[in-house]
Design a protein around this nucleic acid. Sequence first.
DNA 1: TGTACATCAGTGAACGCGCGTTCACTGATGTAC
DNA 2: TGTACATCAGTGAACGCGCGTTCACTGATGTAC
Lengths: 189, 189
Amino acid sequence: MRVTREKAAENRERIVTTAAKLFREKGFDGVGLDAIMAEVGLTHGGFYRHFRSKDELAAEAIARGLAASAEKQAAHASLQDLVCAYLSPAHRDDLGGGCVVAALGGDIARQGDGVRRGLTAYVREQLDRLARWLAGRNGKRDPAAREQAIATLAGLVGALVLARAVDDPALSDEILAAARAAYGGAEGS
Amino acid sequence: MRVTREKAAENRERIVTTAAKLFREKGFDGVGLDAIMAEVGLTHGGFYRHFRSKDELAAEAIARGLAASAEKQAAHASLQDLVCAYLSPAHRDDLGGGCVVAALGGDIARQGDGVRRGLTAYVREQLDRLARWLAGRNGKRDPAAREQAIATLAGLVGALVLARAVDDPALSDEILAAARAAYGGAEGS
DNA sequence: TGTACATCAGTGAACGCGCGTTCACTGATGTAC
DNA sequence: TGTACATCAGTGAACGCGCGTTCACTGATGTAC
C-alpha cells in the first residue's frame, strides 16, 4: 500500500492541519490519534511513519496554527480591520480555525519548551505589529505604543476567551461589541 | 474504618478544594482521581461515597474556585488594588490558587451546562463590580462604565494568560507591568 | 525502455498502561432499646 | 448508662475501556542494472 512520496508528504501535511484544528476544538487530551487519522482518512497505525510521538505532532500543530494566525493578522489593512475580525461572532464560533492562544492558552502554559518558545516568538511578532499600527495612529514615535499594544493584545485574547466561556449568547455578543469599541475596532483609523 | 460525620464532611470539603487547585494547575484531564485523593490523604476507592463522578466533582470544584475568586476580588478596597493584585507576578506564579478563568478558560468552554452557568454568573458579578468602581472614578452615571468594565475584565484575563504562556520571564513581567498601567493599576483612584 | 529487487507508506491486530468506576470487606460511628 | 445491631466512610483489589505505541505484513513506488 505504498503511496507516492508526493502523496505521503500531502498526508503528513493534512495530519498536521487536522490536528491543529481538532486540538483547538477539543484540547490536547480531548482528541486521540485515531480520531485525527480517521478525519484525515487513514488508519492510526501509519501515524508513526510521520511522527515520533503525539507530543511531537502537538508541537508542530501549534506552530502551524500560530503561523497561520500570524499570516491572517498580517493580511489586515488596518488595526480596525484586525480588531473587528478577531472580535467577530464568526471568529468566536470558529474554535478550530481561530486564534490558538485563545483556544489553548491555558494548556500552552503546561506544554514543553518547543511549543512555548514558538508561542513567545508569535507574541513578540504580534506586539511589534500592533505597536507599529498604534504608533501610526497616534503619531510617529509614540513611546506608549508598546504599552498600548500589550493592552490591546491582552484585551483581544481575554475578550475572546470570555465570549466563548460564557453561556448566554446576549452577554457573549455584548462582550465582543464592547471590546471592539474599546480596542479601536469601531473608530476610524 | 468509618469516621465521624464531621470528619467525613471535612474530607469531602478537602476533596473539592484540592481538586480545585489541581485542576487549575494541570487541567481537567491532567489530574486523576487517585492523585486528588492521595493529596487529601485518602485512597481513591472512597471517592464515590462523596461524588457520583469525576465530572460532578469538576463542576463543584469550579464553582468553589469561582466563589473564592469572587470573595477575593470583593475584598479589594479599590480598582487599583484589584488590578495590581490580579496582574502581580505572585498571581501569575500561583496557578493553583489563582483566577479560574485564566487557568481553565479554554477548557471551561468545553464543559457542561452547570459549569458554564456558574461561570456566566461570576462574569456578570465581576462586570457589575468593575462598572461600579469605574463609574465612581469617572463620575456617577457614566454610560461608558459598563463597556470599560468589559474591556478591563478582558484585559486582565488576557494579560494573565499571555504572561503565563510566554517563555521569557522579562517579556512576561513586561506584559504584566504594561497591563497594570493600561488598566488603571498604576494611577491614583 | 524493461525487468528485478529494495524500500517504505499504510494496514490492522495486539500490547500495555493509566484511569474512571465498581465491589466485597472492614471496623468505627451512630442509633434503638 | 449500657448493650446489640445497623450504618456507612474508607480500603484495596479488580474490572474495563480508551488510547498511545509497537509490530508483522502488504503491495505499490522507487531504483539499480
